[in-house]
Amino acid sequence: MTTMWKMVRYQARDVARSRWLAAYTLFFAAATEGLLRFAGGSAQALASVASVVMFVVPLATIVFGTVYVYNAREFIELVLAQPVRRRQLFAGLYLGLVLPLAVGFVVGLGLPFALHGVDDPALRAPLATLIAVGVALTAIFTGIALLIAVRTDDRLRALGAAIGIWLACSLVYDGVVLLLVATFADYQLERPMIALMLANPVDLARVALLLQLDAAALMGYTGAVLQRFLGTAAGTATAAAALALWIAAPATLGARAFRRKDF
């Protein structure tokens, strides 16, 4: 077993036992269960759950990731004092956070759906996409959290940066896009819109899901554009590739900063 997996094994155990993770899982279970009961139909429930996922997963993972790494600072030093490579340790740290958070999310969201059953077979692909997109967001925002925590020594500033990035991706970005659309309504905006969508992981995740729901045109300008330009299959592939890039970029930058860091 490589150093990385050894690290993952113990750290994932630590994260899995935290009350935080239990609360996170319970939250998704309760929210999904509630929406399934009261939304009047799986399709509506799925759309509502999706909104919750897009909002909560980035916030919870980026805050938890940042706080966890700060609390683990002395522990990281202790592990770094062992004969291990820094790259392996960072990979272990990253996966040791992503895996339990992803499992918590999937279990919390999946259990109510599994208990109720999905009545409409056409909803299975969107549900699978929602789960995949939620896991991708977990990986992306944990990566960003690690990058922030490695690059910033001040805990409060790091937490501020984490919440700032979440606000920017989840709220501010949509507003800016709408403003641009309104301002440049007389121009051809399709291509800049696609670029804008690829630049925000939360937008990207939302579009990837909406492409599956056949509601792309209804919910969001960028989604409609992507579907019209690329069709569902190519649009989904583009979104998936962009999400993969979004997972790789912060993790790679974080690993590089971690290798050079003084502890």
């Binding site: 094994r9 155990r13 899995a16 062992q82």
Partner: peptide
């Protein structure tokens, strides 16, 4: 190290096992 802080939810025995594994 000067400051002894370890993962909250692991036991001491698990911590020692982890370091042994890593070595």
């Amino acid at each position: 190290p000067q400051i002894a802080r370890f993962p909250d939810n692991l036991t001491g025995a698990e911590l020692l096992a982890m370091l042994t594994d890593l070595r």
